[in-house]
């Protein structure tokens, strides 16, 4: 069971914005949207594409390889060619510190 790991300062990430961060030897994407932080795997479940390099459309992220869309709040796969959800991770904000806890 992993614990929360501090990954960024609130001021590091504009709203709206996204950045990739490394947590326990894993790359994940951190989003700051509407005052809230979200975190999902940096992996498109279709072809392993890097979601962190994709364009954001509201609360959706678009895989740069084949255009699959995922909900950044839940990791839900919204459009083909992705049929499986990507993993969502818990985010906690303490003061100016943003921490992420990886899902198992």
């Amino acid at each position: 069971m992993s614990d929360f790991v501090a990954v960024a300062q609130v001021s590091d990430l504009p709203d709206p914005g996204k950045m990739t961060v490394e947590v326990d030897d894993q790359i994940v994407v951190l989003f700051h949207i509407g005052g809230k932080f979200y975190c999902i795997d940096d992996v498109c479940t279709h072809d392993g594409g890097p979601l962190g390099e994709g364009e954001r459309d509201g609360c959706q992220i678009i895989c740069p390889r084949h255009g699959a869309r995922f909900d950044v709040r839940t990791g839900e796969a919204l459009t083909m060619p992705a049929a499986q959800d990507t993993r969502m991770h818990e985010v906690r904000v303490d003061g100016n510190t943003v921490s992420v806890k990886l899902s198992d």
Partner: peptide, 14 residues
């Protein structure tokens, strides 16, 4: 680079 066909499925960023 992850743009290379040879590395696009193998992530060594960590």
């Amino acid at each position: 680079s992850r743009q290379d066909e040879e590395w696009m499925r193998t992530d060594i960023r960590t």
